Simulated assay, not measured.
Amino acid sequence: MADPNEPTIEMMFSFFEGLHRKGPGSEASTLKALALLNDMPPNPRVVDFGCGTGAASIPLAQNIDCEITAVEIHQPFLNELDHLAAQVGVGDRIKTLQVDMGKPTFSEDSFDVIWCEAAIYNVGFEHALRIWKPLLRSGGYVSASEVVWLTPEPPRKAREFWEAEYPSMATVDANVSMLSEAGFTPVDHFVLPSSDWEKYYGPLQQHVIDYRSSHADSRAAQSLADSLQEEIDLWKEYGDSFGYCFFVGRAN
């Protein structure tokens, strides 16, 4: 029986409906990663797994002539993406689809590019690479940002937090090795700047404050706010020991 004092997945999704960016990143980092993709076919087919409300899908559609399938499990996110894409004139390039990114329903060789920003942890970096690779055409790319350790000896508090939240979190070098082992040739990688975290945590901090006030009588809501505040505070204190890194690989 579910604990009524613990936040549900539905509560988590509802909380993030008020935030455009669901994780660290920026349009500049998206375009930096995009620039690493060479020799793509005309009008490439792209799938953006864990697309949220289009923080990556929309800049991609604005900068290359492509067909994007934006995949998300939470339909309200997709509804917002459809609205935003239409507003900026790229609605014809983006098709939204409510699908579990960990259980993709696409045929093999469906895409030229697999994109995923700040969401691959939901499946696990290594596992996602293996289940997604068959979806790529020969020579296709995977481009994904993933939270990583930036030091071999992280502070105890940071280590304990991430061991509880994401025990398979690895170093940059380990993830590059996973790319190779999953059948990709590593193309390049880069660590996201701290400003990409600020673009996420700035709005998130205010949202946590507002959420606490508007859900003062809900223990589950307060628990959710507590966990997010802990994450924000951890980054402020130990953000030099972990970060997000963009990895780009090409299917062998």
Rank of each mutant, 00 (worst) to 15 (best):
P155Y: 02
P167Y: 08
P152K: 10
E163G: 08
T171W: 00
T151W: 03
A164Y: 04
V176H: 05
K157T: 13
P167W: 07
F161H: 11
A164W: 05
F161N: 00
P155N: 13
D173P: 04
A174F: 01
V172K: 07
E160D: 15
Y166N: 12
R156T: 09
S168W: 04
D173F: 02
E163P: 02
D173A: 13
V147E: 07
T171R: 06
R156L: 15
A164F: 03
R159F: 14
T151Q: 14
L150S: 08
A174N: 06
T171V: 01
A174C: 01
E153G: 01
A174R: 08
F161Y: 15
V176Q: 10
E146R: 07
L150T: 06
W149V: 10
W162F: 15
T171L: 02
L150R: 11
E160T: 08
R156Q: 12
W162E: 03
V176W: 03
L150I: 06
N175V: 01
E146M: 08
P155F: 05
K157V: 13
T171C: 04
Y166F: 15
R159L: 14
P155K: 13
L150C: 07
A158E: 08
W162M: 05
P155S: 14
V172Q: 05
Y166A: 14
K157E: 15
N175S: 06
E163H: 10
V172F: 04
P155L: 05
V148H: 02
T151M: 08
P167T: 07
W162D: 06
E160G: 03
S168M: 10
V147P: 00
P152G: 09
K157L: 13
V148E: 07
E153S: 11
P167L: 07
S168K: 10
P152W: 02
A174E: 14
V147S: 13
A164D: 13
V148T: 14
S168H: 03
S168C: 02
P167C: 03
E153I: 11
R156M: 09
F161E: 00
T151D: 15
P154G: 10
P167S: 11
P152T: 06
P167V: 00
A170N: 15
N175Y: 11
Y166I: 02
A174L: 01
V148M: 05
